[in-house]
Design a protein around this nucleic acid. Structure first.
Lengths: 222, 222
DNA sequence: ACAAAAGTGTTGAGAGTACACCCATGC
DNA sequence: GCATGGGTGTACTCTCAACACTTTTGT
């Protein structure tokens, strides 16, 4: 059979954009400016254009909503229940992204009456099956933190071990032993020393950056 | 914007169906009976109907190609490059499946001139981006074997530890120490004893079955 | 000198790895 | 009794977890 013989579904991407703000894990949501679920909160996202790859569509959406590019973005899962969208048959490919709070510029648009960060522990009711997608994304985020060096992409180029430790404590919602954390991270041989903090009101910390080539290494981080 | 304002891509599923045959890990391929790549080998798969979920489409394809149902089937990844299919814009959601060799009945169809098992180390050139998909599936398969009890779904209801060990050796292409393997598996507390082998020409093995509730447990298996 | 955060070592428990011999059965 | 695969224990190493004090800096 030829392509034309099949009725085609619409395909969208939905993004779970995470950031750490004021010591909490936050996710980006938009207030829908259009039906269905007009006025309800939902994940940012939109249709995949016919001449762009799904990854490109996700990247474009991320930039439209946050102004951010060149940041960690990874496909999560594809949701294809027949009735997940009241407008008709819509398949969505979900992605998750990590952005640095201070590099983000939120902008409303026609689709999004409002764009806002929410503490993942204080989420509103979400449109479509977006609560399921968000739960899935949090699991994946934790997994990524546990087994990859991805967390470091959320920190400045030079960072201290304690900044990294804070990040892990926010994502896993528990404390890590300082000595064990230092020992573990330093034993992985993934960091280069990059001098010291300056102008701090207490003992300056050593700064590190991720070693070249360690970006995609799979290591047990914690 | 409304759904109608977007030109829609076609959506297919592609299946990587694994089985263990004669001590080797095999994948199921079809010889394409239609253009493009007519006469070339490809993964089984097909279009997602407008009134079925993607999971249902994958399940249906699996049954059409192998006659198998109720077996391990899991979504892998969604491939959405613009030019991945010469017929036009086709997005494919890949799945991987595990089937028991002896429960499979291969059938050719209009789309598939021939259906055949291939040793994953002796694969022919594949159509589309199917070699990438297959590589991805093998990675995932190994990960699943390492961290879940999924391997057991490939064995008969009652099985011996050495059958399980053989399976792991095939998938990881290396040997496991017999004593350590027995010790590790039995220490996980995921098996129930189910009597002994009968009518074997040597010392009969103890048989086990997977404990109720252990199907989805995440454990380090090896 | 004090406030604030940085940095550092040891010990015990449990898990992984390496390694070789006896056992039960059918023929 | 022999061929075939089943089943078992010990010692070493390494990793993980628990635990508290000293150091450096700015004010």
């Amino acid at each position: 059979m030829a392509l034309e013989d099949y009725e085609r579904p619409s395909v969208t991407t939905d993004l779970v954009v995470f950031s750490v703000r004021e010591g909490k894990l936050n996710a980006l949501l938009i207030k829908r400016g259009v039906v269905p679920f007009k006025g309800g909160w939902a994940l940012p996202g939109g249709f995949v254009n016919i001449d762009e790859s799904i990854d490109e569509a996700a990247k474009r959406e991320l930039q439209e909503e946050t102004g951010v590019k060149d940041i960690f973005l990874e496909q999560l899962y594809t949701w294809g229940e027949v009735d997940r969208d009241p407008r008709g048959r819509v398949i969505t490919v979900s992605y998750f992204a990590l952005v640095k709070d201070n590099e983000v510029e939120l902008k409303a648009s026609t689709d999004a009456a409002e764009v806002k960060w929410f503490d993942v522990n204080k989420l509103p009711k979400l449109a479509f099956d977006h609560d399921k997608i968000l739960k899935y994304a949090i699991q994946r985020l934790r997994w990524k933190f546990e087994y990859t060096t991805m967390a470091i992409s959320l920190l400045p180029k030079k960072f201290s071990i304690s900044q990294l430790k804070n990040l892990y404590e926010v994502v896993f919602e528990r404390e890590f032993d300082k000595r064990n954390f230092y020992k573990k991270i330093l034993s992985l041989d993934i960091l280069d020393e990059k001098g010291m903090q300056e102008n701090v009101a207490f003992r300056p910390a050593k700064l590190y950056s991720l070693k070249k080539g360690a970006e995609s290494r799979v290591v047990a981080m914690v």
